[in-house]
Nucleic acid binder design. Sequence first.
DNA 1: CGACCTTTTGAACGTATTCAACCGATGTGG
DNA 2: CCACATCGGTTGAATACGTTCAAAAGGTCG
Lengths: 266, 266
Amino acid sequence: MSAPNGLGAEAYQSVATGAAAERQRAHSTLPLGLPERCSICGLRDACVSCDLVLVSTGRAEDVIVNDQHIVQGGYLYRAGDPFTALYTVRTGSYKTVQSLEAGREQVTGFHMPGDLLGADGISSERHDCNAIALEDSHVCVIPYSQITKFGRYRRELQYRLQKAMSGEIVRKHGVMLLLGTRRTEERLAAFLLNLSERFATRGYSPTEFVLRMTRRDIASYLGMNDATVSRQLSKLQGDGLIAVRNKHLQIRDLAGLTRCLSGKAD
Amino acid sequence: MSAPNGLGAEAYQSVATGAAAERQRAHSTLPLGLPERCSICGLRDACVSCDLVLVSTGRAEDVIVNDQHIVQGGYLYRAGDPFTALYTVRTGSYKTVQSLEAGREQVTGFHMPGDLLGADGISSERHDCNAIALEDSHVCVIPYSQITKFGRYRRELQYRLQKAMSGEIVRKHGVMLLLGTRRTEERLAAFLLNLSERFATRGYSPTEFVLRMTRRDIASYLGMNDATVSRQLSKLQGDGLIAVRNKHLQIRDLAGLTRCLSGKAD
DNA sequence: CGACCTTTTGAACGTATTCAACCGATGTGG
DNA sequence: CCACATCGGTTGAATACGTTCAAAAGGTCG
């Protein structure tokens, strides 16, 4: 697990039911003999749920199921699903997609290990977007029942949840700022720098990583056309700031890329 | 309090220090003999903090200070301020503004009675945006200390806070969708319809209200130029969907305005 | 190997911005 | 109370940016 692995094309539709079935299974049977526990998970600092209960009671199973697997292209949850649990990404990555009438949709976020998923469902007790695995992924499951209950070792959970949701709001503000005030080149630069930071936080290389989402996903997220994403990537490459080959991306001039953000003329 | 009142020009700069001083005052002295209590506030359903403690202990003062006044153009809090409390708007309205390097900034939200303010500060324990009163306004203050404490009557607070933050995330998704996938006319229509809904929820007329923010604020929020806001408002008026006169807005054809949202060609 | 999907690139078009002038409303000071 | 200054809003014309449409190249998977 030294660097994020690449992935092939996505196949959203075909695996959906399979994923749902798998989800069912994961909920009903407590996974014993897990390959990893919080104590060896390596996400400690970044993760919402990590080490949460081991610290206080040692009975992780009551609160967190930490081995739900979703295959590439599978749904962790769908818009409209009853909200039953929160999730933290353990391995792999997800995108969240907001569907609109007339087939229009937008990617509202990319989520990597340690990130919280599902908080959108708390308010209406139904999820309002789709969470789709960008690659084969594992999540930890925090049942909703554990969130409404109170008790010694849920204080910490409540606290972290609040922080995570607040952080989510702050991040959304950032994206809105991006969508509202930036040119396409700046948006793309900001996007890459954001990824870079997040990889760095998680111990991966900040200058060389794999874009596990499609160009179309990026375009959707950044509110632009996929053709424009291609063009701007090519331009950034032409300027010597990055090197792209398929899904593999290398940042060659971090400072220069950062300079893209502040104003246009350099 | 039958309909939102109009307001004049905003004066952000001059009142700032005055507002800060006022805030200080509101924090240090418990307001006795308040003009309104939760039980007669009229925001019951919509408000995060309303009736919260009266129900359980009757000692509202411990948890909520419900009469902090901010004058028009004054700051409720600023980006970078230590996070000390959450707020619910009681009367008036606010905008939240994200500042960027080089004087660029964006309006990230408009907030009306019952809405939660300040949740952006939980994650880093500092606020990440400015909250500015669009008119003379009152808020209820929920000190941070009350949020971290646990106890019988904070369960409800925690619960409502979660719901409110989750709702905030959902709303931001909606805005992102707007910014990312919509033409300017659609954005404006969506904005007006959103306002309409929110006014309706609060018992105001959904078809006739006052835009308490400037065109520039709207433009910033919707990620477009203020000239474009003007143009599109004029166009919507020309199409007979709305009537605008200065800050007064009337929706003449709600269905038609809704139709603006779905696709372009009618 | 062949079918399909993603990505790239080109050319024409359309939308929204920019710049600027003008109008109207508001608020201030004489 | 009126004149003036200021700010917010509207509108026009030119420009630039990004989209759209289309075609072709490159990958991926059966």
